[in-house]
Amino acid sequence: MIEISNVTKEYVEGNKALRNVSITIEDGEFVFIMGRNGSGKTTIFKLLMKEEELTSGRIVVNDMNLGKMPRSYVPKYRRRLGVVFQDFRLLKDLTVYENVAFAQRVVGASNRRIRESVPAMLQMVGLSSKYKMYPHQLSGGEQQRVAIARALINRPEVLLADEPTGNLDSHNAMEIMKLLEEINGMGTTVIVVTHSHEIVEKMHKRVIYMERGCVVGDETAFDPAEEEEDMTEGGEFYED
């Protein structure tokens, strides 16, 4: 569970990027954090990554209080998170396979483990046949799939995605969202920072709206099929 309680973040004195923000995200949830530029959504992302220190308040991720976490523990903490960026951040001189393997190599995984898990992960994101290709030989959507595979290879509990569809057309964007939904279905908590209304509307997931550093709305997820059913049932009731 992720608990953000009364968090304020001030980069420069008097200029608050977050003002008294409180959000709770349960295990296995799929959440969008939405807002315009400067709304504070990326600051939340950075605080969760422990890239920035909060000014006041408390953030607890899976029972770990980030405010009290020593710097030496940060690498271990980050291994429990997966992270995806808008610009993919793939290594250009490594193949698809090597890019995914890289994430395991830097945390000291054995060659045997890498040989076993990377092909399985590439199969999951639908890139088995392209494992020898370099990033520049792939489409934007495929590159983002590689980035997702890299983020998931160390089996994180939480996947953080910062504008993962920002560089993609609507078709590829929806494909990536479906993949993230699949990953969420396997039990991983997924947090997507975005400003795309189109995607948020199509996904029917929980949406936290942010504006000028404050949470201004929190819409819970809904299943359109169930809603339709409810309406039908309601209609029957009225007809009766």
């Binding site: 690498p75 903490y77 980050r78 890289f102 830097v106 945390v107 000291g108």
Partner: peptide, 16 residues
């Protein structure tokens, strides 16, 4: 720079 940044996000230690 890019590689080091990715390593940090993935959870590589300073030593690595």
């Amino acid at each position: 720079k890019n590689e080091n940044q990715i390593m940090r996000y993935i959870g590589a230690t300073n030593g690595m």
